[in-house]
Design a binder for these strands. Structure first.
Ligand SMILES: NC(=O)c1ccc[n+]([C@@H]2O[C@H](COP(=O)([O-])OP(=O)(O)OC[C@H]3O[C@@H](n4cnc5c(N)ncnc54)[C@H](O)[C@@H]3O)[C@@H](O)[C@H]2O)c1
Ligand SMILES: NC(=O)c1ccc[n+]([C@@H]2O[C@H](COP(=O)([O-])OP(=O)(O)OC[C@H]3O[C@@H](n4cnc5c(N)ncnc54)[C@H](O)[C@@H]3O)[C@@H](O)[C@H]2O)c1
Lengths: 219, 219
DNA sequence: GATTTCTTGTGAATTTTTTCACAAACACTT
DNA sequence: AAGTGTTTGTGAAAAAATTCACAAGAAATC
C-alpha cells in the first residue's frame, strides 16, 4: 500500500536487507519526528512515537534495530538524532532530482505542488507531447516536448520519474524512460507496467485504493 | 504496497477472512481481466493472468481459493465469469458514492477525472471552505461549502470520502467526516490521521513513495 | 548511593504470507 | 473411449513479518 499496492520483490546489493515495509515506516517515522521537532520536543519514547505513526511500539523498535541502536533506556530517543539517522539510512539527506511526464490534470497538480521540496525531492522539469498549451500556468519548472527528454535525463543524471500520462501510452513512455536510464518510476496510470527487474515501479492507483476501502468498510 | 503505505489491522465480521494484500491483488486481477475481455479473449490460465498482473501463478490461485473455485482444470478460467466473481466478492458490482473534501490543485484534478466511473466509483459532490472560486471550472459535480456536508452525507448515505485538504486542517476535517458517519477515507494529506478503529484510512503519500523508490534504486 | 521506575533492545514464539509440489480433474486428440 | 497433455486446487513447507516477554541499562527519586 500502499500501500500498499506494490509487491515487486526487492533486491538490494550492499547494506543489511531491510524489509520494504520497514522502509515505508521509516519514512513515516521521520515525518512524525519532524512534527515533534517543530513542537520543540527533544526526546520521545518508542511508545509515543509509535502511537503518532500508527504502529505498535515493538514494531518501531524492531524497525530501528535493522540498522542500529539509537535509544537511551529509561528515556527514549533523541528526536533530532533519530531523525538524522533515519534520513541517513533512507538516503534522503541530499535532494533527488525527479522529472514528470504527462502534464495533464493530475500532472499539473503535481508539478505545481510545493510540498515535495520540504521532503527532499524536486520535480526539476516536466515533459509532454503537447508542452506549449501548459505554459500559461504559473509553475516554476520548465515544460519540454517529449523529444527533449533523453538529452535532459542524461545531462541531469535523472534516476526517478513520475509518470502521469494516459494509460494507453504509459507502457510506451515507460520503455522510453527505462531506455534513458531511469531506475525508479512512480506510476499513476492504471496499468501494470512491464519493466526490467532492476527498475522499480511504485504504483499509485486511486481506483484500487477506493475499491479496497469499500471492501473493508462493508464488512 | 503502494500501496503499500497502509498498515492498519483490518477486522471483518462476516465472510471468510481474506488478507488485505489479496484484496489489493483481486483489484489488479479484475483490471487485467477487463483488458483481456476488451481483446476478445474468453479464457485465461493462471499463468497468463498472473504474468499480466505481475504476480506468481500460485499466488493468484491461492488468492482465488480464499473465496471459491472458478477454474476448469486443463483449460483455465473463463474471463467473464472470473471477472464477475471477483467483482461480487469485492462488492464493486454496484456503484459507490464518494465525496471529496478540499478542492485545491489536487482535488480539482481528482474531481475532473473521468476514469473513476468506469471503475465503479463516482465522486458525487465536493466540498471546500471556499467553494465559489472553483465554480468556473468545467466539472460536472456540484461544489458546496463545507457547512453543507453533514446534511449531504446523511441524505445520500455517503460512506467514503477523499480528503485533499492542507495537512494543517486534515485531522479536523477527518473528525467531521467521521462524525457524519463516513467509514472510509482516502487521505492525501501527509499526516497520520487518528480515527476510531472501525473507520478505515488509506493513505496516499507521494513523498513517501518517492522516498521509497529512491532508497531501493540506489542499492 | 541505593532503590524504584522507565524504556530500550532482542531472542524466541507466533502469526501471516508466500511458495512448493503434486494429485485430481478436465480438455483435446486420435 | 482410451490416452496424452494441461492446468487447477490445495495441503504442506518455507519464508517473512509481527508480537511477545523479559533482561539489561539508564534515569529519577529519595
Ligand atoms: N486525474 C486524476 O485525478 C487521475 C486519477 C487517477 C489516475 N489518473 C491517471 O493518471 C494519468 C493522467 O491522468 P490525467 O487526468 O492527468 O490525464 P490527462 O489526459 O489530463 O493528461 C495526460 C497528459 O499526458 C500527455 N501525453 C499524452 N501522451 C503522451 C506521451 N506519449 N508522452 C508524453 N505526454 C503525453 C497529454 O498531452 C496530457 O497532457 C492517467 O493514466 C490516469 O488514468 C488520473
Ligand atoms: N498537489 C499535489 O500534487 C499534492 C501532492 C502530494 C500531497 N498533496 C497533499 O494534498 C493536500 C491538498 O493539496 P493541494 O495542493 O490540492 O492543496 P491546495 O492548497 O491547492 O488545496 C487545498 C484546498 O482545501 C481547501 N480547504 C482548506 N481548509 C479546508 C477545510 N477546513 N475544509 C474544507 N476545505 C478546506 C482550500 O480552500 C483548498 O481549495 C495537501 O494535504 C497536500 O499536502 C498534494
Amino acid at each position: 500500500m500502499p500501500p500498499s499496492l506494490n509487491f515487486a520483490p526487492v533486491k538490494k546489493s550492499s547494506r543489511p536487507i531491510i524489509p520494504r515495509k520497514t522502509i515505508y515506516r521509516l519514512s513515516i517515522y521521520t515525518r512524525c519526528l519532524a512534527r515533534l521537532r517543530e513542537n520543540g520536543i527533544g526526546t520521545v519514547s518508542s511508545e509515543a512515537l509509535a502511537k503518532a505513526a500508527g504502529v505498535k511500539p515493538t514494531q518501531l523498535r524492531k524497525d530501528l534495530a535493522y540498522f542500529g541502536t539509537f535509544g537511551t533506556r529509561g528515556l527514549g530517543y533523541d528526536v533530532l538524532e533519530l531523525s538524522q539517522k533515519i534520513s541517513d539510512e533512507l538516503g534522503t539527506s541530499r535532494l533527488q532530482p525527479v522529472i514528470l511526464v504527462g502534464v495533464g490534470h493530475l500532472g499539473l497538480a503535481l508539478v505545481s505542488y510545493r510540498g515535495f521540496e520540504k521532503e527532499g525531492f524536486e520535480i526539476i522539469a516536466a515533459f509532454d507531447t503537447d508542452p506549449g498549451r501548459k505554459r500559461d500556468k504559473k509553475i516554476s519548472q520548465p515544460i519540454f516536448g517529449i523529444e527533449a527528454m533523453p538529452k535532459f535525463i542524461a545531462e541531469h543524471n535523472v534516476k526517478m520519474a513520475i509518470l502521469s500520462v494516459p494509460a494507453a501510452v504509459a507502457q510506451e513512455v515507460a520503455n522510453k524512460l527505462v531506455e534513458c536510464g531511469v531506475m525508479g518510476i512512480l506510476n499513476f496510470a492504471p496499468i501494470v507496467l512491464a519493466v526490467p527487474e532492476d527498475v522499480m515501479v511504485n504504483n499509485v492507483n486511486l481506483a484500487i485504493e477506493l475499491e479496497n476501502l469499500s471492501y473493508f468498510i462493508q464488512g
